[in-house]
Design a protein around this nucleic acid. Structure first.
Lengths: 242, 242
DNA sequence: AGTTTAACCGAACGTATGTGCGACGAGGTG
DNA sequence: CACCTCGTCGCACATACGTTCGGTTAAACT
């Protein structure tokens, strides 16, 4: 009873997967990775919030139709994953630490250093190649938009709370596209030559001045002479692990 | 009765595997590769010529002792292979074509909805209202820490600026591990029952009270009765695309 | 010889789990 | 509007499957 909120999200497409089916597929994959054996119909139902086992069964058969799955009749947990949502093979490794190897669209980005309060970005301009990157962070390509395959991307670890007005906290990772110009509305890392410090702000050109607007709307913008601002790069994404 | 040929091949070794146990191990591995799910006790018995299910069970437990296997009690086919006879990890690929790509660790996470100001978290626990066409976001596993393979992870899109004190802005994506308890210092999504709104804060238990501490140190914490707080999940990561 | 123990057997038990069927509301269609 | 299909629900049923327990046998030890 209750609200019949979840309208059958009109899914009239023939061989396209419904949201539920997508979720089921993802769940099966996750479950498999975690447990080494496939879930039962009821386990799936619980995870995907389907009340009736028959509905799970129904959707499972849809997935079989789309050849995402194979099923063995009358066999408990008789599921065989054929591919995941992205038509990618799924490999599962049985080890103490279960590790998944799969293809995916991630872009490896070198972590080049830290960005801290009051310090200019210290980057070897001449970094022809990545100077033994401390680390490679793998960033989901969609997060990088059309710059996903650019070769002038690097990551920085934020140190300290000096970037809070950009909603960036201590230990966050920022992914930066190196460039010296910016368009209005871009989030940029800029060096303020007067105070000789680097900060993250939204960029707006206003005549001869540049307005640096914090992301946090409760804070006030800074207005500076365009000559005294040096753009270091455009921030493409922020990652934070808690 | 015939010849009692295979006499209990005097296996007096402590932690060494008997022939039967070796056969079982090999069979499980093969079965797994062939079917994508583990065999039942009876299937093992048939394959290895063991008449009684209890004997299979017995030997299975031996294998668990030698940490070749893990078992999930009361779960059909609840076997997890840890290593094979040669102490090698066992990889199983679920595909028609075998194609190994670059090893990269991403975890697909379902985007379950939005979290907005003054609104309780809309979770599939209660219903299945998914405002936006669902989406699967691929999150770099390292970002999820040890929860990378958990099956209770979901993503939410933040709507509005109500979470700024957690350094989370409009349109950010938060990745949440569903759980109802938390430890001090965790960043959690909590429902404040008095105001009936959900917020992101750092969690600290202080006796009968709970202190909800903003990430932004310039803001003040909230103190509330533990009874009036319902933890929705722990925030594992934040993603922001600019 | 008596005792212990590892390995095994058979059968019974209970529950974990897939399947089938009737019903219902929302769309779509003639 | 009658009629059909799709996605969903609830429920009952049969069986797939793990667990338990009494009992047996042979090797090892006292």
């Amino acid at each position: 009873m209750a609200n019949t909120e979840s309208k059958r999200t009109s899914r009239r497409d023939p061989n396209k997967l419904s949201e539920r089916q997508k979720k089921i597929l993802v769940f099966i994959e996750q479950f498999l990775k975690r447990n080494g054996y496939p879930p039962t119909i009821r386990e799936i139902g619980e995870a995907v919030q389907i009340a009736s086992t028959s509905v799970v069964n129904y959707n499972l058969n849809k997935l079989v139709n789309g050849s995402y799955l194979e099923r063995s009749p009358d066999v408990s947990r008789g599921l065989r994953l054929l591919k995941n949502l992205n038509n990618e093979p799924v490999e599962i490794e049985y080890t103490h630490e279960i590790r998944v190897i799969e293809a995916s669209n991630v872009t490896p980005v070198p972590m080049l250093g830290k960005i801290a309060a009051g310090m200019p970005l210290m980057l070897p301009e001449n970094h022809s190649l990545y100077p033994d990157p401390d680390e490679i962070v793998e960033v989901p390509s969609p997060l990088l938009g059309r710059y996903a395959n650019s070769d002038n991307i690097y990551a920085l670890r934020v140190q300290g709370d000096s970037m809070v007005d950009a909603l960036v906290g201590d230990r966050d990772i920022i992914v930066v596209q190196r460039q010296e110009t910016a368009e209005n509305g871009d989030m940029v890392a800029v060096l303020l030559e007067d105070s000789n410090e680097t900060t993250l702000k939204y960029f707006y050109r206003e005549g001869k001045l540049i307005r640096l607007q914090p992301a946090n709307t409760t804070m006030d913008p800074i207005l500076v002479d365009a000559r005294r601002v040096k753009i270091q790069g455009r921030v493409l994404a922020v990652l934070r692990q808690l």
